[in-house]
Amino acid sequence: MLSLRPYLFILLISFCGCKKIQQLNPQLHPEWLAPIAKTSVTLETLSLLDSSQFTRKIPSLDLGFPTGITLNVPALYFSHFGPYPLPVSDWIKEIKVHTLDLTISLTNSFPITIGAGTIITIRNDADTLKNQNIISQHALPNDVLPGETFTFNVQLNDKSINDTVFFYLDNFNSPAQNNVTFTNSPSFITVGLNIIAVDLIKFYPDKTKSIHDTSDFSIDNKTNTQAVDDSTVEGKLVVYIDNAFPLNSVFQIYFLDDSKRNVIDSLFENGINLSAASTDINGSPLSAQHTVDSVLISVAHLQKIKLAKFAVTSLDLNTLNNQSQEVNANNETYLNIQVVGDLKMNFHL
């Protein structure tokens, strides 16, 4: 048997409580010590290549046929049609990959068929007499007709890749065809490289490389604006860095506006300079460089950062001032960065 009376009593005292709370306007000054952001860079997570996808055009003139003229094409055969050099990185001399995902597409824009049995070969140099320089070979199981694309995926293990690789169409064959006209549209080969695991990288000396990572960033919404009075926020951000890469680095975080084009502010005035760690001939780190730096949070600084919509963590890597011919790094090398906040906030309830 329920009675409303007990509940009315509770409602009554709750109402009294609500009236009291309206009178409160507490300003609090909590001091928080907490990690904010971290990043861990390894050979696998580092963007080693200039791109993950490369395209190489094959114009009809390479077959000896001009464009815009109607021709009778005889049966064709080339034992090695190529080479087509493909630069994959200008700062890496050689990568010894443990696992590599390879995706290759051949698009036939010619008016003639590329016959079955044609082999797509990737080599580390242009020498067709050697077998040791072959990275991958794949024969076309069927004819690739004009306008068709043939694609295949393969995972490779324990391969070396140089800074430039060379494509060939070995055993290139094509049946005779009459009254065909080659156009300005070339055929092309597209290669996708996805390095899964790396054993060793040999960097060139005196090279630089910038890596950026963009993240959503927002500390300015209506709720927080009401809650945090940033005019009295004070404190510092402490950055802990362990660098076991044989690369000098400059670490910085940039804050961007909505358009992602304009830099509103940066976290550090000049970025944090990290000295390269030394490695042995196998690329193993001999020592890690520990760096601790901090940046004071000013009111102006924070107000600018609050306007940002994106944050870009920037890492400028270089092998400058390295006396050796190559800089080796294996999969034991790393760069860990952690940002810790030591902040005192003025907080309205």
Binding site: A34, P35, I36, A37, K38, T39, S40, V41, E44, T45, L46, S47, I211, D213, T214, S215, D216, F217, S218, T313, L315, Q338, V339, V340
Partner: peptide, 17 residues
Amino acid sequence: KFDGFSTNYTETQNSFN
């Protein structure tokens, strides 16, 4: 366990949220 929001260089976009 929390040691900071991760920014991962394998992805172009990460959301702290």
